[in-house]
Amino acid sequence: MRRCEAGEAFENNTLKTLSGTMREAVKKTFRYAASFLLIVTLNFAIPRLMPGDPVKNLIGEDVYVSEAAMEQLRAEMGLNRPLYEQFTAYIGDLLRFDLGYSYHLHSPVAEVLRDRIAWTLLFVGVSVLLGAVLGTLLGAYAGWKPETKANRLICCGFIALSCTPPYFLALLCLDFFAFELGLFPFKGYYDVPTPGSVIHHMFLPVTVMALFSASRNFLIMRGSVIQEKGHLYAIYARAKGLYDISILFRHVIKNASLPIITLLALDFGFLFSGALFTEIIFSLNGMGTLIYDAIIGKDYPVLQGSFLVIALAVLLANMLADLLYAVADPRVRRPTS
């Protein structure tokens, strides 16, 4: 009888947690769907809302077309049809990976982007990971002993880094290491497509971006460790006689790094934009230079396509972080209520 009750209670409990998890998951999914929709809608609405002729806004301002051709284009793009029809047509285009045609570069936008984005993702991915590792470790150590001179110095340094625009840092590095000392090449991803050449070319930009990303992680991690080490479990571990290092790296760091995961996802967009500027400085042939040229040439289709792709990348990064969070923190998997 009792066992039966207990079993029922257990079942009830699991059901409740399951439904709780499900509800959370549904909520999350709903939010992601809403953000996706908002991004797509923004991308659809901006060229049509902005001042000026929508045809011009959709094909880019530097293209010269005659009046007759313009009318023809207007009909072709369906700009004289009602808005909801335009929207459904637009969604259909997106599903076929058709992001429009860049008259400036004489090729479809999707193709241009496909060529460029791999390099940018490699660049951003490597530097974000390096930055996360560097920032977390240094931040954990600085938070563990915040009073020492060295840690204070590191802290000041990272605050200064996080307050400097990333492209200015890149500019200084390029000037000093590439121009003055001649240690690194000035531009491009490689001279010959071998890994050695690529690493040689990527070293400076990746260092700059990794430092920038580390500076943000460092500050969060430091605060988080300072907070965590005052908790009872850390004091207990010390009372038990564990070494400082093992308390920090086996117990405190796990709890303290939770905010980092959220921050990494939220920061991904920020770092991505920082990477765009760094690419421009180092003349790397990625999304950054593409966007820079598109701004100068008023090549709107490319700009819109880039925005869409970047926004989707950030969205995916956030979803990944949510999954990681559930892996790292069991409390998320079973809600308390």
Binding site: F30, R31, Y32, A34, S35, L38, I39, L42, I46, P47, M50, P51, G52, N57, L266, G269, F270, F272, S273, L276, I291, A294, I295, K298, Y300, L303, Q304, S306, F307, I310, A311, V314, L315, N318
Partner: peptide
Amino acid sequence: MGFTDVVLIIPKIPLIIIIGAFL
């Protein structure tokens, strides 16, 4: 808060770049 979360995800600087390029 749902709206806030939705807006939080959108990358700011690329969006500003687009709007700034049009205006």
